[in-house]
Every structure is written in C-alpha cells, then in structure tokens.
Design a protein around this nucleic acid. Structure first.
Lengths: 142, 142
DNA sequence: GTACATCCTCTAGTGACTAGAGGAGCAAGC
DNA sequence: GCTTGCTCCTCTAGTCACTAGAGGATGTAC
C-alpha cells in the first residue's frame, strides 16, 4: 500500500483543484479523509481513485447526483441488483443520447472544417444544421 | 415571411424557457427583438432559428463563449476562414474526446447491466474504468 | 528561528440559468 | 366600461458546481 498524499499532491495527481476536492468532501462525494497530527487531509490510494472517477464523470457532463448514484453502487456491492439495474440503465440511456448528439455534431464540425478549407465562411451551415437537429427532443430532464 | 411570435410561443416552439430567452438577450447571444406597441418582445423567424441553435449547442455542452464565437462567424460570413477553422477544430477535438470517454463508459454500463442480470454488483468496475481513462488529459480548458 | 510553501476554515463571487415579486397589457365575457 | 385571467414586463434573489480570497495555523529548509 502506497503512502497517503496531502491535498496539494492529490490535486496535482488527479487534476482536481484543491478547493474542489474540499468541496467534494463537503457535499459527501468523497469520504472524510484521515488527518495528520497537524489536521491536514491525507488521501489514500482508493480515495485517489474515487477522485479520478469523479473528475472524469464531471468532464463527461454527469451531474453530481448521478455520480453519487454510481458511487453508491460501488460502495454497496451487496445491494439488490434491481436497484443497480435501474441506475445503470438510466445512466446508459443518458450516455447513449449524448453519444448520438455528439456524433451528429462531430459530423457537422468535420464537414465545416472541410468546407472551410478553401474559401469564406459563407457556406458553413453549422447554425442551420444544429437548428434543425434541435427538433429531435422537445423536453429536457425533469 | 411568417408573422413574429411573442416570447411565450417562442419558448414553446424552441424549447427554451421564457426567462432563459430573456437571459440570452441580456448577455448578447440574441439581438434585441422588435417590440409590440405594448412593449412586448416579438421574435422573427431568423431569431427563432438562432434560438434553436443556441439551445442545441448548449445541450451539447458548448459554453456560451463558444456559441458566441460560432454565431459571430455566422454573422460575419466574410470573415477569414482561418478563424472559423480554429474554433471548429477546438470544438471537434473536445467532441471527439467526449465521444471516446462516453463510449468507454457505455461499454462498462452495458457490461454492468449484463453482469447484474444474475448476481450482485460486486464486480462492477465503473470506477476503475473511468478512473483509468482520466489520465488521458491532465488539464482542462483555460 | 525565521522565511516560505502548504495547509486550514470561512465567506463571497462566477456562469448559466431558474424562481418569484410586483405590476402592466390585452382578449373575452358580462 | 369593468372584471377575470392569462401573458408579458422588470428586477432581485436563489441554485449548482465550482473558484477565489481573507486571515490564520503548520511544516520544512536554511
């Protein structure tokens, strides 16, 4: 087992800023870490892993509550599979929707870059494309 | 040319809420619309199109500044293609990174749902999957 | 033992909305 | 003309997920 890290090193290693780590602790995404004699936070390997997960999930646009749900799954492996299933399926649906939207956008961005290669912007259709796509869904999350 | 819409109908049609439309006006994403005799906003077809674009772009995770940049491009079609290219390529890189991460997560969620079909959650590896991927980039924007 | 970085807690500010107060405009019915 | 009720107006304040800063304690290097 590796030695524990102070918050500054935890921040550097995870790419999550120091105040953000403290914020995650405050809202209960991270457990209260061990403290040194001088009252400083010390992060274990498993906490670092959890932190990396949170960071990545946030980058992907998951809300804190969704991340909390995923972490709960991990924390309670004995839990009924039905619960896990509901959470996982909801996340999956969300992820698939995001992938579909981003794939459509990627296509349009590629087209735009290609089209722009040799002239003015006047024939770029980003706005038209995205405006039309926006009819795909008519309501957002609750 | 179709007749102009009051803000409530603009909201219904675009899926952007009334206060959000006013907010977009306030921060300069939408132009100041025509007003009726009674001082009510009236949205033309082109403003509706712009609104639809903004909504879709926001759903896809673009920041307001990025949207502003794209709209500026559209507003100034005589502008150099180099500028458009820079914006589009930055967006494309971002989008591709997101797609890659989400695809990895989708795989894991699917695996999880399958695994859960017959047992406990104990071997779910969501955290590991994302925690490892998170080394791909070490810094965010700005 | 004194610099100086790193840490602590606490409060306040940011971006992108979102909700609510308090009031004006307007269409329909009496 | 007058009321009912909806939509609209402006303005301020609240939310989420951070982010920055004040003011002070700790830890390490010379």
């Amino acid at each position: 087992m590796k030695e524990a890290l102070p918050i500054g090193q935890a921040a550097t290693q995870s790419g999550v800023k120091v105040p953000t780590i403290r914020y995650y602790e405050q809202i209960g995404l991270l457990p209260l870490p061990l403290r040194s004699e001088g009252n400083r936070r010390l992060y274990s390997e498993s906490e670092m892993r959890r932190l990396a997960f949170i960071r990545h999930a946030r980058e992907l646009g998951f809300e804190v509550d969704a991340i909390r749900a995923l972490l709960d799954l991990q924390d309670n492996p004995q839990r009924s599979c039905a619960e896990a299933d509901v959470i996982a399926r909801a996340r999956l649906a969300d992820v698939e929707h995001r992938i579909a939207s981003l794939t459509a956008l990627r296509k349009e961005l590629r087209r735009m870059i290609t089209a722009c290669a040799g002239g003015s912007v006047s024939d770029c259709m980003v706005i038209e494309t995205l405006a039309e796509n926006s009819q795909l869904r008519s309501a957002k999350k609750g």
